[in-house]
Write a protein that binds this DNA or RNA. Sequence first.
RNA 1: GCAGGGUUAGUGAAGCGGUCAAACACGGCAGACUGUAAAUCUGCUGGCUUAUGCCUUCGUAGGUUCGAAUCCUACACCCUGCA
Length: 263
Amino acid sequence: MESEPIITPLIAIVGVTASGKSKLAMQLAERFDGEIICADSRTVYKGMDIGTAKPSKKDQKAITHHLLDIINPDETFNVREFKQLALDAIHSVAAQDKLPILVGGTGLYIDAILFDYQFSPAGARRSLHNPRHLKYQELTAYQRPLRTNSLVIGLSQSKDQLQVRVKERVEAMFHKGLINETKTLVQKYGWEAPGLNTIGYREWQEYFAGRQTLEQTQDLITLRSLQYAKRQRTWFKRNNSIHWVDDPMKVVDLVTTFLNKKQ
RNA sequence: GCAGGGUUAGUGAAGCGGUCAAACACGGCAGACUGUAAAUCUGCUGGCUUAUGCCUUCGUAGGUUCGAAUCCUACACCCUGCA
């Protein structure tokens, strides 16, 4: 199943939150007749639209997006499932003679595809250091070669830019009714649901409990998003296969060259 | 005006004569990451510099003491009670 005929060209777009990945992906998909595969651990959840900045219905109608809304917020998901699903999606896109574009900020998911992660058998030992981690494989990260026929593009952004963009994005989420979306989700699934442990949602807990103002909630979400971006930056930093660009316009050339070379 | 309480590093907050460059939390910086990853975990966070080193900090100015963030005096600002 996992033996992909490694000839399918793949474009991957990475970057921290609010860096403009989705928009760029749309442009590329339109331009190069592609379909988007979302490598995002949060947009897989149904009903979590505003808080995850999920691609709009309009965008989804214009371009096929894979791996969106595939599970309920009270269900769990993991890299292994992701890898299988994403691989399937890549194949089906390629089978239609279209260009698969892998987009997302979940570094682990991206790398599972890019570096063909091999997962431990069930019952693997947990790391003493961090119980949430399974004991390390024999291979160190990035020791494996990058998936052949892949172009990895990273959207870089200065910290100042990022700060502004995140602030605006969170503001927009509030206007779109993030509070109601959260309320609905909590009523339906409860705070314990895996999906609710997400920036943009869990911060409302204190607000609903009356221990936090609306403004404080908004500031907190902005802060947590920025901290998240920091972690993403650290993750991507060590992957030197990424072609970092600060101007989305330059990407078209990159992709064109990449596709021509492959013919 | 009188009587109390307070002023500590970016923020909040411990400390109440030596073992204090000063707990802890948050924030910040850096890092990790192969079945929870928008999660989880680790290190650093006064300066110099990286040493069982030096220097400068605990409202301001003095004083007591071998030794003060810790005691005393004065001043400044803040809060509370009585006027």
